[in-house]
Amino acid sequence: MKSLFQYLKEVFLGFYSLWTGLKLTLYYFTHPRKEIITEQYPENRTTTINIPERFAGEVILPHDENNKHKCTACTLCEMACPNGSIKIISVQEESEDGKKKRVLDKWIYNLGMCTFCGQCIDACPQDAIIMKNSFELSVYNRNDLVKTLNKPGSKLKEKE
């Protein structure tokens, strides 16, 4: 008799535990707008999408309004990059007073090889490069991933 009671109790408790789970899913079914976690991505791209300031997107070399950047072509970023996605081409330039100076010619950035680890930003002593929080980086042609970051005709910004 005792074992029969135990058997029925087991059945009852089993059903009760199932009911507690069903109650939770029913609650979410009847309150569909309470906690929707999915984002409606392509639609919300101009409205509710929230990309943090620090989000590590593509690397850019900011230029000011006079088309000047801060890169001294020291190649520390190139050395810091674990994937070899940065290539700095510099030229020797002679200034008016006869001093030879290394000047940035091309700051080549291969987006396809970048893992967005941020080591180049960390290594840069001039804070010349930053990571933009853009994330829609895909292109149709693989060659478009290789970018020259310095604008044509840009110059090094003199220290104030």
Partner: peptide
């Protein structure tokens, strides 16, 4: 729809 609402989706 049932699955979506139960799983906090649309």
């Amino acid at each position: 729809k049932v699955a979506g609402f139960m799983q906090l989706r649309l």
